[in-house]
């Protein structure tokens, strides 16, 4: 299966990315080659293999769940320190709903 230009445009739209014409062409080729590579796995016969979503063993919850005990958070100043725009204790982003 190869990735079309429309696929790239759709993915970019979903991710709110504005791509240049050049980028669209580059990504169409690159994404196609990635998908073709992964598709190699389709050559395997998996008729009797159960679908598996995770490689970890399920059942043992001792290391995968934690107690409901609060620990100190970063705090607002630190949390906001990497933000491109912030003020009044909040992250600021371009207006979403007008």
């Amino acid at each position: 299966m190869s990735i079309t230009r429309q696929d790239v445009e759709k993915i970019a739209a979903l991710a709110n990315l504005a791509l240049t014409e050049e980028e669209i062409q580059t990504f169409t080729v690159q994404l196609s080659s990635i998908v073709s590579y992964v598709e190699k796995m389709n050559e395997l016969d998996t008729t009797d293999v159960e679908p598996m979503s995770h490689s970890t063993l399920s059942g043992d919850t001792s290391y995968t769940r934690r107690e409901d005990d609060p620990k100190p958070s970063l705090g607002a100043d630190l949390a906001l320190s990497n933000a491109p725009d912030s003020g009044d204790g909040h992250f600021k982003v371009p207006k979403v709903i007008g």
Binding site: A79, G87, K92, V93, P94, K95, V96
Partner: peptide, 16 residues
């Protein structure tokens, strides 16, 4: 938050 903040005319504010 879309309203009632100092720059609400041009910005949305996010509390996480």
């Amino acid at each position: 938050i879309h309203d009632g903040m100092p720059q609400s005319a041009t910005k949305s504010y996010v509390n996480l």
